[in-house]
């Protein structure tokens, strides 16, 4: 029987059936789910358990025929432990947690990601492309150098096929234009006449910058941003270690995707993170 989603339960053990180097210090993995499940939604996340090592939240890049794709950038011991895993090894997943992106129709979809943030955007792109209505999808990606651009080949191909418009840049100019992705985003916002929605995922300071930029343009009717980069323990609302002030919203349950109206109310957004001790630290 195909389940709508997974039960909130102990880690579900999944076999790694594929692994490849996505870009510098970043690997993609395909995990075989042992149960039939209809789907995760773009923007949701899983808690990934590397047995005997660590567990942490990971964005979902895709889910098809019970094969879950994730992308893991090297960010510390926990992610290195995953990088050491090979095809045939087992890891555990819990999820699918959190509220997804909710794209409206008849707008420009402007997706902008930095670093690991591009992972959940991949699934959003796939979903938008499947929509029956013609969608204008613009993807803005930036990285320090060419070899750090995630999903570069795939995005270029989609651009060449006319499925999306790909705006790519690097800090050092090794690929695309030299500079930040927000440059192309702002240029686009200055030109466009169509209502637009911005979707962002990545480092919070970057997103805050994008948020402040987007607010200057009335054509931007909504912004949906993922705060899934915060420290989490449970993933389902109990520990509230990921909660933001002053609203008390838990990123894992009330988010991780928040819209403009909600982001306005989160004074921690782009300013403070919460450590595993519960102490707050300036970003």
């Amino acid at each position: 029987m195909t389940k709508q989603t997974l039960a909130n339960d102990k880690p579900l053990m999944c076999k790694i059936v594929d692994k490849w180097e996505e870009c510098f210090e970043t690997f993609s993995f395909k995990l075989q789910l042992p149960v039939k499940v209809q789907g995760a939604k773009p923007g949701q996340f899983i808690m990934l358990w590397i047995p005997g090592e660590d567990e942490y939240p990971v964005g979902i890049a895709g889910l098809e025929n019970n094969i879950l794709e994730v992308g893991i950038a090297r960010m510390g011991e926990g992610t290195e432990a995953m990088h050491r895993k090979e095809v045939g090894d087992f890891v555990g997943i819990r999820g699918f947690y959190g509220k997804p992106f909710t794209p409206p129709e008849d707008v420009n979809h402007l997706l902008i990601g930095g670093g690991f943030g591009v992972v959940p955007l991949k699934m959003l792109i796939e979903t938008l492309m499947k929509s029956e209505k013609k969608q204008d999808i613009h993807v803005f990606e930036g990285a320090r150098t060419k070899n750090r651009l995630m999903y570069l080949k795939w995005l270029q191909e989609l651009h060449d096929q006319g499925e999306i418009t790909f705006h790519v840049c690097t800090d050092d100019g090794s690929f695309g234009y030299q500079g930040f992705p927000t440059v192309a985003l702002e240029e686009f916002l200055q030109k466009t006449k169509t209502p637009s929605v911005i979707y962002a995922a990545g480092p919070e300071r970057m997103m805050k910058f994008i948020f402040d930029l987007g607010k200057k343009y009335p054509k931007v009717i909504d912004m949906q941003m993922s705060l899934a980069g915060r420290y989490m323990r449970c993933g389902f609302g109990a520990c509230a270690n990921c909660a933001v002030d002053p609203t008390g919203w838990r990123i894992c349950v009330d988010g991780p995707i928040f819209n403009t109206e909600k982001l306005e109310k989160i004074s921690d957004f782009g300013v403070y993170e919460r450590l595993d001790t519960g102490e707050k630290k300036k970003l």
Binding site: A7, N8, D9, K10, P11, M47, W49, D54, E55, Y56, R94, R233, C234, F236, A238, C239, L275, D276, T277, G278, E279
Partner: peptide, 15 residues
């Protein structure tokens, strides 16, 4: 201040 234990440190038991 204490970081507590290594994760997984909490999960549900659905059944």
């Amino acid at each position: 201040p204490s970081s507590g234990n290594t994760n997984p440190s909490i999960f549900a038991l659905n059944e």
